[in-house]
Design a protein around this nucleic acid. Structure first.
Length: 800
RNA sequence: GCGGGUAUGGCGGAAUUGGCAGACGCGUCGGUCUUAGGAACCGAUGGGAGACCGUGCAGGUUCGACCCCUGUUACCCGCACCA
């Protein structure tokens, strides 16, 4: 048989759709499997080959699970709000709704042409008002529970996109969307209090099966540290200077204090500061730098001593100077530190530069040369002298600090609260009304969704305000609380909002009275397996775990963590080994492969190209190899004779069933396909196989290459869909060969092989081995000192 | 700087986790069939005439090391003056 993909692919795709083959069933008594892929952003560029690889793992697994009798939820949706669509809409003067609909239609057509077994009856579109109604609903619940607040701070602002970015969206000082330089701007913006969930997000990691590196990355991102808060008295000032330290044991070694340039205490006590001009100048110089630039210049410490502020060491009573320096960040801890130059490299460098005292409090280093950050015996530390630092002195200090009311133990996090806003059109409107009498008032739940108004002009305002601000009919409203004139919030939510809960909507996508019904949630949640890119490990995953955990605390979802298992997909690189990019001209369009070779070839090649979790380069000739393999599979139809079992192939079939089944579970698709290739070669060597064997073969192939597998099954007389047929089971006893080939070694060097009965005794094997000519030639005239026999593997004769 | 990872033929990658290194595929070479082949099929393919040598490099443990240990180099990915 020859398979014509130009006809067959469509034929089977149509039939799957007509028979609703891949739609999840409402029968909640069946064993379930919920496989999730990161839903795509429907860009105008269409499907990328990276999407193909990203989706193929859960595709293969879901197809196998269905054949194993599971009720499978393998959904697809579109994360369609976002700046790219909006910028395109502005450029082409087309409404983003139209652009989005067009792109989704295109993605849908393309995804279907690859034969993905998504449940198309549950498609979720984050820009659909029936969806974002619930995004707004969850936001209001957070507002209600004090997790939403507004704050005026320095924000990362992209002058090109005219939008405020979160820290996550502006890493390296570049805008995540357009890659222009981010500037610092003072603005009042919305925040979600994600830091309140820091500990829950940390402890939740113990309950889930993520790879160690992913867990580690999330742990680092949250960045919990334990230490102490200490309040330093300021000479002649009522207020105390509060600092955070992880090393309260070194308190007696404090010789100066440093505060961040933005620290509020400067303005508050400006009249006490003698050199205010100098301090101001320094502060302005720092403000001009972005946080990125500040960290880049970490080599050289700069700072200014504040004349007029003197701190008092709460334990020793010594007076110590206070500096302002940009190596201390306002955003971490309290924005102020106690400096212990003897035992901190940064403080040491600063102290050397400014000629400040260095007091050693831990023995073990040479502080005349460098800071000593190791452990040792405490010295020069009054009641701590003689203690081992860290071990018990930290606990002792915290005890004393607490007793005397000068401080207490505490924790801090690197993670900051989530800047939750965009001043753009194409996002979920934040459902809050600003009332001159009542303040911030939430839009009542029964008025959701708060729809995006129709506007003519999607351009953001010059002051960086949202296009919604120009729509008077939207802005002007009545306060839901007092009925007086009020103004609507005009910011929209960031793109991460819609993707923070989409996996819940899939469970019950048409529900009108809740984001999803509890029955459906109890059955489908948690997600059994979530596959996606490493770039989403610290943003999307942490955000969505936060939203989910919040809903759990409200009793709205049934399990404590949303994703039971997570795995990562590796990039598809260009054939030159570099990241695919238009400028390098190494981009592969998956639809070109589909039209030239068929969907099965694309799918099989992507599975076969390498380790799924690792980046691997594209190879055009490799694609042809996949095509050749599938053509050879089709050729098997010519070799079919009779039914039942071919004795010469039986063991190979059982081994292959075992291997393919196990490899799919570990996403080792390359070796699964290699095993099918090996079996194929054996069948060709054998010259024939039975109908039943070919059926088994195409069942194993079906998750990878479903169209051709269905077609072959049909030629064998199968009437129902192969995609829903029972997955083959192997018989362990039949995977064991009657004879085994052992490696023959002398002194660990390979000298040949030996074929023996699988049940042969140790004595028999050893005597056979010692009698072997190739062994004899090495052992002759020497003394055998050791004989090693590992059944099924190796014989090693050690001689002297 | 800190944390995590990787290193195997001409290429992508295998190796039951300490037991025949290079499965499978690509490429290459030779052949068959062809007017032709950049199609298909068959055969060979780590290096070396050979004894032997080969998993980034140098050691170590072991009967036996791609795998474990020590040191080292290169590259990749996170985080980065985090107090």
């Amino acid at each position: 048989m020859k398979y014509d993909f130009t006809v067959g692919d469509k034929k089977w795709q149509d039939r799957w759709e007509a028979e609703h083959a891949f739609e999840a069933k409402d029968d909640h008594t069946l064993p379930k499997f919920y496989g999730l892929i990161e839903f795509p952003y429907p860009s105008g560029a269409g499907l990328h080959v990276g999407h193909i690889k990203a989706f193929i793992s859960m595709e293969v697994l879901s197809r196998k699970r269905r054949m194993q009798g599971y009720n499978v939820l393998f959904p697809i949706g579109f994360d369609a709000f976002g700046l790219n669509t909006e910028n395109y809409a502005i450029k082409t003067k087309t409404h983003p709704r139209i652009v989005t609909d067009r792109n989704i239609a295109n993605f849908t057509r393309q995804l279907k042409s690859v034969g993905y077994s998504f449940d198309w009856s549950r498609v979720v579109d984050t820009t659909d008002e029936d969806y974002y109604k619930w995004t707004q609903w969850i936001f209001l619940k957070m507002f209600e529970h004090g997790l939403v607040f507004r704050d005026k701070t320095l924000v990362n602002y992209c002058p090109s996109c005219k939008v405020v970015l979160s820290n996550e969206d502006s890493q390296g000082g570049k805008c995540d969307i357009c890659h222009s330089d981010v500037v610092q701007k003072s603005k009042e913006v919305w925040y979600l209090r994600i830091t309140e969930y820091a500990d829950k997000l940390l402890s939740g990691l113990d309950l889930v099966d993520y790879p160690a590196n992913i867990k580690q990355q999330q742990i680092n991102w949250i960045g919990k540290s334990t230490g102490a808060f200490v309040n330093f008295e300021l000479d002649g000032i009522e207020e105390k200077l509060r600092i955070y330290t992880t090393r309260p044991d070194t308190l007696f070694g404090v010789t100066f204090m440093v505060i961040a340039p933005e620290h509020p205490i400067i303005d508050k006590y400006a009249d006490k500061i003698a050199n205010m001009d100098e301090v101001k100048a320094y502060r302005e110089a720092c403000a001009k730098k972005t946080e990125f630039e500040r960290t880049q210049l970490q080599k050289d410490k700069t700072g200014v001593k504040i004349d007029g502020l003197t701190a008092i060491n709460p334990l020793s009573g010594k007076k110590i100077p206070v500096y302002i320096a940009d190596y201390v960040m306002m955003g971490y801890g309290t924005g102020a530190i106690m400096a212990v130059p003897a035992h901190d490299e940064r403080d040491y460098e600063f102290a050397k530069k400014f000629g400040i005292d260095i007091i050693e409090v831990i023995k073990g280093g040479d502080i005349s040369k460098e800071a000593y950050t190791g452990d040792g015996e405490m010295i020069n530390s009054d009641f701590l002298n003689g203690y081992d630092n860290k071990k018990d002195s930290i606990a002792r200090v915290i005890e004393v600090l607490t007793e005397r009311g000068i401080g207490e133990g505490g924790v801090t996090y690197k993670m900051k609260d989530w800047a939750f806003n965009r001043q753009r059109y194409w996002g979920e409107p934040i459902p809050i009304v600003h009332c001159p009498h009542c303040g911030m008032v939430p839009v009542p739940y029964d008025e959701l969704p708060l729809r995006l108004p129709e506007v003519e002009d999607f351009e953001p305002g010059e002051g960086g305000e949202s296009p919604l601000a120009k729509v008077e009919s939207f802005v002007n409203c009545k306060c839901p609380k007092c009925g007086g004139d009020a103004k609507r919030e005009t910011d929209t939510m960031p793109q991460w909002a819609g993707s923070s809960w989409y996996f819940l909507r899939y469970c019950d996508p048409k529900n009108e009275s809740a984001f999803a019904g509890m029955d459906a949630l109890k059955y489908w949640m948690p997600v059994d397996w979530y596959n996606g890119g490493m770039e989403h490990v610290t943003r999307h995953m942490i955000y969505s775990r936060f939203w989910y955990r919040f809903l759990y605390d409200l009793g709205e979802v049934p399990y404590i963590e949303p994703y039971m298992k997570r795995s990562a997909v590796g990039l598809v690189l260009g054939s030159d080994g570099q990241k695919m990019s238009k400028s390098l001209g190494n981009v592969v369009d998956p639809l070109d492969i589909v039209s030239a070779y068929g969907a099965d070839t694309l799918r099989t090649y992507v599975c076969f190209m390498g380790d799924y979790g690792v980046a691997s380069p594209w190879s055009d000739t490799g694609v042809k190899g996949a095509k050749r393999f599938l053509d050879r599979v089709a050729g098997l139809t010519e070799l079919v004779h009779g039914k039942g079992v071919t004795p010469a192939l039986e063991s190979s079939f059982h081994k292959t069933i075992k291997k393919v089944s196990a490899d799919i579970e570990e996403l080792k698709f390359n070796t699964a396909i290699a095993a099918l290739m090996t079996l194929l070669n054996e069948i060709y060597d054998n010259g024939s196989l039975t109908r039943d064997e070919l059926l088994t073969f195409v069942k194993l192939l079906c998750p990878f290459a479903p169209h051709i597998s269905e077609e072959i099954a049909e030629t064998l007389g199968e009437k129902s869909l192969l995609s829903l047929a029972a997955w083959p089971e192997h018989d362990e006893a039949k995977t064991v060969d009657a004879t085994v080939e052992l490696a023959l070694q002398v002194n660990g060097k390979l000298r040949g092989t030996l074929t023996v009965d699988k049940n042969a005794s140790k004595e028999d094997v050893l005597s056979l081995a010692k009698a072997d000519a190739r062994v004899l030639s090495q052992t002759e005239g020497k003394t055998i000192v050791k004989e090693i026999y590992v059944p099924g593997r190796i014989v090693n004769i050690v001689v002297k």
